[in-house]
Design a protein around this nucleic acid. Sequence first.
DNA 1: GATATAGTTGCCGTATGCGTTAAATATTTC
DNA 2: GAAATATTTAACGCATACGGCAACTATATC
Lengths: 110, 110
Amino acid sequence: MPAAARLDDTLAALADPHRRRVVELLRERPRRAGELAEGAGLTAAAMSRHLRTLRRAGLVEETSPDFDARVRVYQLRPEPMVHLLRWLEETERMWSEQLSAFKAHVERAD
Amino acid sequence: MPAAARLDDTLAALADPHRRRVVELLRERPRRAGELAEGAGLTAAAMSRHLRTLRRAGLVEETSPDFDARVRVYQLRPEPMVHLLRWLEETERMWSEQLSAFKAHVERAD
DNA sequence: GATATAGTTGCCGTATGCGTTAAATATTTC
DNA sequence: GAAATATTTAACGCATACGGCAACTATATC
């Protein structure tokens, strides 16, 4: 269960608006499952499934407070997003190189 | 058809490994549809669908060279990825703020 | 110990995604 | 103008995603 951090899972997990909403709620602070369900306007069952997806993608981490073991608190795990960030930055970088190469080419042709 | 750039479409488009492969091929240079199909190990038909998806997400742009109108050349369009990048950076930013707030809290408790 | 609370899981129906093969479209080439 | 080339579209099958509701598990409360 050491969090895949594979781009596939990360992107698929983030591709759902409800799950992105969860991420947006969690980036403010950790929250309980029920809180997330309410905040996203979903039933507890539906949210539970989304949380499982996010957990499997390594995007969130689940813990229980010791004062109430029924509750599950979810917290963000940034690693997968950092990984995705890097892939995007690399793409950006190469694209702009491509651009300047093209510009140079045009200028040579002038 | 001015390219949605909505996170939903961007993420869904990038969540497929074949389509990510296309992006990786295109970040080097523009390429013809057939070249992309070969480079990703897909039939022309399958690739055509992926390209449609990428086009609808605004991630690629299609043009035809004037010397052969049968050919379609695809090129990267970074806008949607930049948008996604910003969302991820914002998430990162807020997460680290959350972290330091927590740290400060713990230190106060000491 | 009975009941309430917090969440998860099973099952179902519907919707959507992806690849394949077979046409269809458009344009070049001979 | 007939045959070849580059790519897209159509029709089909299969797998998977998502939500709803009901049942289930585990823990807390009275």
